[in-house]
Amino acid sequence: MGKLGKLFYKMLSLLFGVLGGIVAGAVFKQVWKVVGREEDAPQATDEERTWREVLPAAALQGAIFAMVKAVVNRGGAAGFRRVTGTWPG
């Protein structure tokens, strides 16, 4: 893959990374409504919340973000290969 191809892939990766973050945030918000039975997840800096409330929310949020990131990265690489015939990396 040439320099232009690498640059193009990096630009697409950044764009899809931002979009993936937005999607992951929306997914987490909907999952939290069901799992946490409340509108918003507890914030780590909320003095009224306990560790037992904050840590599971953070773990769930991290897992969702990691999964969406993997889907976006893998899908982007596969799409790039379909278009260019070369796997980025």
Rank of each mutant, 00 (worst) to 15 (best):
M1K: 08
G2P: 02
G2S: 13
K3N: 09
K3R: 15
G5D: 10
G5N: 07
L7Y: 15
L7T: 15
L7Q: 14
L7E: 13
F8L: 10
F8S: 08
Y9K: 01
Y9S: 03
Y9D: 03
K10T: 12
M11T: 11
L12S: 06
L12H: 02
L12N: 11
L12T: 12
L14S: 01
L14W: 00
L15M: 08
G17N: 04
V18S: 00
V18I: 15
L19V: 14
L19Q: 08
G20F: 01
G20A: 06
G21S: 02
G21M: 00
I22G: 09
V23D: 02
G25W: 04
A26Y: 06
A26K: 14
V27E: 00
F28N: 03
F28V: 03
K29M: 06
Q30I: 08
V31P: 01
W32I: 01
V34L: 01
V34D: 00
V35H: 02
G36L: 09
G36A: 07
R37Y: 00
R37D: 09
E39R: 05
E39Y: 05
D40F: 07
D40H: 11
A41G: 04
A41W: 07
A41R: 03
Q43F: 13
Q43N: 07
A44T: 13
A44S: 10
T45K: 04
D46L: 09
E47F: 07
E47N: 03
E48S: 11
R49F: 00
R49N: 10
T50W: 01
W51T: 09
R52I: 14
E53Y: 06
E53P: 05
V54P: 05
A57K: 02
A58R: 09
A58F: 09
A58K: 12
A59F: 13
L60I: 13
L60V: 08
L60P: 02
Q61W: 15
Q61E: 15
G62P: 15
A63T: 05
A63L: 12
I64V: 05
F65L: 07
A66D: 09
M67Y: 06
M67I: 15
V68K: 06
K69Y: 15
K69H: 15
V71M: 09
V71H: 06
V72C: 05
V72N: 02
N73F: 10
N73Y: 13
N73E: 11
R74E: 15
G75E: 05
G76P: 01
A77D: 10
A78M: 12
F80R: 03
F80L: 08
R81T: 15
R82S: 14
R82H: 14
R82A: 12
V83E: 12
V83K: 08
T84P: 01
T86W: 11
P88F: 12
P88Y: 08
G89V: 12
G89W: 10
G89R: 08
G89F: 12
